[in-house]
């Protein structure tokens, strides 16, 4: 099977998506487990504090279940189960049994939603995209029809393009982003920046301006990936990978690479389907 044929095959696309998402989700889950001390009583995510939200307070069934699953030991079990299930998912896809795929996906989605519920702080866009990817795949596999799975892949592809477009458009309408120094000012922070890069950009106003504009123009152009056909769509994928690798190295945003790369098989698939 050639690559051009493979990207038209939904099962191959799902295998790519679940593998990439699985790498990111397993790293992310292990990072949470590495921080287990902060989830314990007295830690930053002490359930006695973050669980004082309305849904978890009281004696109703919802509150009792939330407290059982999300207190320290319960949540460590949730994280452990998530780690195993995201690694198991590509194997289930390879095996090709729909019931097994739905069962593992249900566990992945369930534990992902519990993670979102439990960790009110410290979540980022990669967690949002991972939720979108796994959620759409679960919905796509539920009916057991190729149309539903295809709809899920379209959802992932369109959501990915939409995310880049919104990210670019929100910058394009921002006076701060259109001004000269914004890229320098971001890289100048200890939070998201990197001192050598800030030093390099410090007195290069034109370069800084160009980087800012090129970032949001390319982001806004990303939806074109769906209509340029195969193999031109690969150029967009390569830009995306380079963009997220740079963000991982310079800004420390390691989880974005895997979460957004997980959408690329669906982007390539839809581009190839539209071109065919």
């Amino acid at each position: 099977m050639s690559i051009a044929q493979a990207v038209l095959e939904p099962r191959v696309v799902v295998l790519g998506t679940t593998t990439l998402a699985g790498v990111g989700a397993s790293i992310s889950t292990l990072e949470w487990l590495r921080n287990a001390r902060q989830l314990a009583p007295g830690g930053l995510y002490d359930w006695a504090i973050v669980g004082s939200r309305r849904f978890a307070v009281g004696t109703r069934l919802r509150a009792r279940v939330a407290n059982r699953l999300l207190e320290y030991r319960g949540f460590l079990a949730v994280l452990g189960i998530r780690f195993l299930s995201v690694l198991l998912l590509p194997a289930a896809v390879l095996a090709g049994t729909r019931v097994a795929i739905v069962a593992v996906l249900a566990v992945v989605v369930g534990t992902t939603l519990l993670m979102n519920l439990r960790t009110v702080y410290g979540m980022d866009g990669s967690d949002q995209m991972t939720t979108q990817v796994y959620g759409a795949l679960l919905l796509g596999y539920l009916p057991g029809t190729s149309l539903a799975l295809s709809a899920a892949l379209w959802y992932i592809a369109v959501q990915a393009c939409f995310s880049y477009f919104v990210s670019g458009a929100a910058k394009a309408v921002s006076p701060q982003w259109r001004s000269e120094g914004v890229i320098f000012r971001i890289f100048n922070t200890q939070t998201y920046g990197y001192e050598p890069v800030a030093r390099f950009l410090r007195n290069r106003a034109r370069l800084t301006w160009s980087l800012g504009w090129s970032a949001f123009l390319v982001e806004m152009a990303f939806p074109l990936a769906l209509v340029v056909g195969f193999p031109l769509v690969v150029l967009f994928v390569l830009w995306g990978v380079a963009f997220h690798v740079m963000n991982a190295v310079v800004m420390g945003l390691n989880s974005f690479l895997w979460a957004f790369a997980a959408t690329y098989p669906a982007v390539v698939h839809v581009a190839a389907v539209l071109a065919s």
Binding site: R53, Y164, S167, K171, Q176, V182, R185, I186, T189, Q190
Partner: peptide, 21 residues
């Protein structure tokens, strides 16, 4: 939206973080 099902894709915009806390 306790499960974070509604994404927000406006990363670093419209006001990027340009200061440290």
């Amino acid at each position: 939206d306790h499960f974070s099902l509604i994404p927000r894709w406006t990363f670093f915009a419209p006001k990027p973080g340009t200061t440290d806390y």
